[in-house]
């Protein structure tokens, strides 16, 4: 049952990813990305990471996709989609490199963990309480650094905006 659900969702995620990369329209790409992120949220819940599943919906499917859609709306999608002659072999080269990369990772996965499928410990419940306990005790320093990073990003975005206003 869980396996069937996984396979169906994996197919949706794969198709959404391919659609995102190949879509000509940037808005369609953003919507495909939204589908992909939503499927990932379900995966997180299937993997006992309930808190991360909710955060995935709020942060990625909510904030980031909306941000992308705003910017696409402001600058009008595909500007300057001129095909340059330097880029003739890009598709073939990228596809070959991608296939090699997947083969490499697949080989690594097959060699290392195909023999041992047992769960090492009891599955940890990733609820708000457990995540909060870990985040505010063991991982307090990374948490504070992340807050500093968020502050820096916010100040940077606002400063960039004021600089652009000054130039007008």
């Amino acid at each position: 049952m869980a396996l069937l659900l996984f396979l169906a969702l994996a197919l949706v995620a794969l198709l959404a990813a391919v659609g995102m990369v190949t879509s000509r329209n940037a808005v369609h790409s953003a919507l495909f990305m939204l589908v992909n992120f939503a499927v990932y949220a379900i995966f997180y819940i299937m993997l006992n990471a309930q808190f991360l599943g909710v955060v995935q919906v709020i942060v990625y499917a909510g904030a980031i996709v909306v941000l992308f859609l705003f910017v696409v709306m402001l600058i009008g999608g595909e500007i300057g989609a001129v095909r340059s002659s330097l880029r003739r072999y890009t598709y073939a080269a990228a596809l070959i490199l991608g296939a090699l990369f997947v083969a490499m990772i697949g080989l690594g996965i097959a060699q290392t963990i195909s023999t041992d499928q047992t769960v090492a410990g009891a599955p940890a419940a990733g609820g708000v309480e457990a995540i909060g306990m870990a985040l505010f005790t063991t991982y307090l320093l990374p948490f504070e650094l992340a807050s500093l990073l968020l502050l820096a990003g916010m100040v940077g975005g606002v400063a960039r905006r004021y600089k652009a206003l000054d130039e007008d």
Binding site: L47, N48, A49, F51, L52, V55, Q56, V59, Y60, A63, I64, L67, F68, V71, V119, A120, G121, A122, P123, A124, G126, A130, I131, A134, L135, T138, Y139, P142, F143, A146, L149, L150, A152, G153, M154, G156, G157, R160, R161
Partner: peptide, 30 residues
């Protein structure tokens, strides 16, 4: 994280989400 039965991977993913949010905000501003 699910395989090993601890939360370290989930915390790591959480921090990555924060970094990704900042990266998108600053990158789209650029």
């Amino acid at each position: 994280a699910n395989q090993w039965g601890n939360l370290n991977g989930q915390i790591f993913a959480f921090i990555i989400m924060a970094v990704a949010a900042v990266e998108v905000a600053v990158g789209l501003a650029i």
